[in-house]
Amino acid sequence: MVAYVIIPGIDGSDDRHWQSRWERAWGEAAVRIAPGSWTRPELRDWVAAVQTAYDVAVARGGRAEGGADGRVALVTHSLGCWAAAEWLAWARPAEVTAFLAAPPDPRGPAFPGTAAPTFLELSARPLPGPALVVASEDDPYADPTASAALASGWRAPWHSVGAHGHLNSASGLGDWPVGRELLDTLVGS
């Protein structure tokens, strides 16, 4: 069994967002982070929220350290990619995969630095487990060169899904079957 930790970007993901649609489809197998700083993200708060959601996911059937019943997959979008990467670097959990969709470039001109100043100095470091960076060719928060560089820093494969903006609700992806197929391949479902 796979337990999913949903890690959206600033302000969470609305009901039309693919993350919310997947979360509804997964039911109890999915846990969404709940930081206290959705609108003005604080890195420590978001990392702590990832830990809390991970603990709930493990209790619901994801693999605990040394357990044998399942795995945990982090399903991230935008700024949530950075919260997940920082949590992975700190917690170094076993048997956790990371699906990193549309990570923003903290050094890019569109990065929301005034809203998320504690995320500005982050850099991509190798992740401790399997991961995949999924990017759009016309993402205003990270061009293909920047998102491929992030993938390289995280030691994760980079996959372009064409021109779909920031891979958010405005992108009109609906249930985003292409993303779901990529995630399923990553977790081995």
Rank of each mutant, 00 (worst) to 15 (best):
V2N: 02
V2C: 02
V5S: 05
I6V: 10
I6F: 11
I7H: 01
G9F: 07
I10E: 12
D11M: 10
G12T: 02
D14I: 14
R16S: 09
Q19T: 06
S20G: 08
S20D: 02
R21P: 10
R21T: 11
W22Q: 05
A25S: 14
G27S: 11
G27H: 01
V31L: 07
I33N: 01
S37Q: 09
T39L: 07
V47Q: 00
A48V: 13
A48K: 04
A49Y: 09
A49M: 09
V56K: 04
A59S: 14
A59H: 10
R60M: 01
G61R: 04
R63C: 00
R63G: 05
A64D: 12
A64G: 14
A64T: 06
A64K: 07
G66V: 12
G66W: 08
A68P: 00
D69Y: 00
A73Q: 12
T76K: 00
S78A: 03
C81E: 06
W82E: 01
A83C: 12
E86V: 15
W90T: 10
A91P: 08
R92F: 03
P93Y: 04
P93H: 04
A94R: 08
V96I: 04
T97Q: 02
F99G: 00
P104D: 06
D105G: 08
A110Y: 08
F111T: 02
F111S: 05
P112W: 11
G113C: 03
A115R: 08
A115E: 14
A115S: 09
A116V: 12
F119R: 13
L122S: 06
A124Y: 02
A124Q: 01
R125T: 08
P126F: 07
V133W: 08
V134Q: 11
P140N: 00
D143G: 10
A149I: 13
A151L: 15
W154Q: 13
A156G: 09
H159E: 14
S160N: 02
V161M: 13
G162V: 09
A163K: 14
H166M: 13
S171V: 13
L173P: 14
P177Q: 10
V178H: 03
E181K: 05
T185D: 11
T185G: 11
T185Q: 12
V187Y: 04
V187R: 14
